[in-house]
Structures are given as structure tokens and as C-alpha cells.
């Protein structure tokens, strides 16, 4: 069992490295955010895999929470990049026009 889990973890790490390469290369800010998003969702999978590797069942809660936080973080960063302002509630509408 364990070799398969390790192999899969390595594969996911490779994906994360590739995403990181794209995040460094850009060229637009959106390419970077896509790459960071992929990096985040792969982190969730790695944490889930590590749960099974180590047998600490509690770790799965970390993955569960990370899945939610990652989404909120991406949307927040996107809004910050778009509007340079997190305070106003209708900024998205205004810049959309």
C-alpha cells in the first residue's frame, strides 16, 4: 500500500512544482492566480494523502478546512487585484461596466 501512496504523493508534488513554475513565469497576473489556485487544491490532496500515509485520521479535518479556505483566498486575492480595495461591497459591479 505505502509505495503507491508515496508515488501518488510524489506525482502531486510534481504537479505543484509545475504550477509553481507557471506562477513564477506569469506572464499575466491571472496566469499566476490560476497557478496558485492549482497549488492550493493540490495541497488539499497532499494533506489527504498524508492522512493515509501516517494514519493520523485527524489530519483529514485540515484538508477539509483548507479546501474551503483556498477558495475564499483565491476569490479575495482576485478581488484585491481587480479593485485594489476589499472594503467596498459593490466594487465588482462598478469595475465590470
Amino acid at each position: 500500500m505505502t509505495p503507491v501512496l508515496v508515488l501518488t504523493t510524489m506525482a502531486v508534488f510534481t504537479t505543484m512544482a509545475l504550477a509553481l513554475a507557471r506562477a513564477l513565469k506569469g506572464p499575466t497576473i491571472y496566469d499566476r492566480i490560476v497557478a496558485v489556485n492549482v497549488f492550493g487544491t493540490k495541497t488539499v490532496l497532499v494533506v489527504a494523502l498524508i492522512t493515509y500515509l501516517t494514519g493520523h485520521a485527524d489530519l483529514i479535518d485540515v484538508a477539509l478546512v483548507y479546501a474551503l479556505i483556498n477558495f475564499i483566498a483565491i476569490v479575495t486575492v482576485l478581488k484585491l487585484v481587480k479593485t485594489r480595495d476589499l472594503a467596498s461591497s459593490d466594487a465588482g459591479e462598478g469595475s465590470d461596466a
Binding site: 506525482a11 510534481t14 504537479t15 505543484m16 512544482a17 509545475l18 504550477a19 513554475a21 491571472y30 490560476v34
Partner: peptide, 22 residues
């Protein structure tokens, strides 16, 4: 399933690098 998942992860990563535009 695990290995297929890993392989598709790497393929997606390669796509992220190789495709020409955003």
C-alpha cells in the same frame, strides 16, 4: 485510481506549462 489520479495531475501540470495563452 490513485496512480491514475497522480498521472492526470502531472498531465494537467504539463498543460499549465505548455498551453500558449491564459
Amino acid at each position: 485510481l490513485l496512480l491514475t489520479g497522480g498521472v492526470f495531475g502531472v498531465i494537467g501540470g504539463i498543460g499549465l506549462i505548455r498551453f500558449p495563452d491564459f
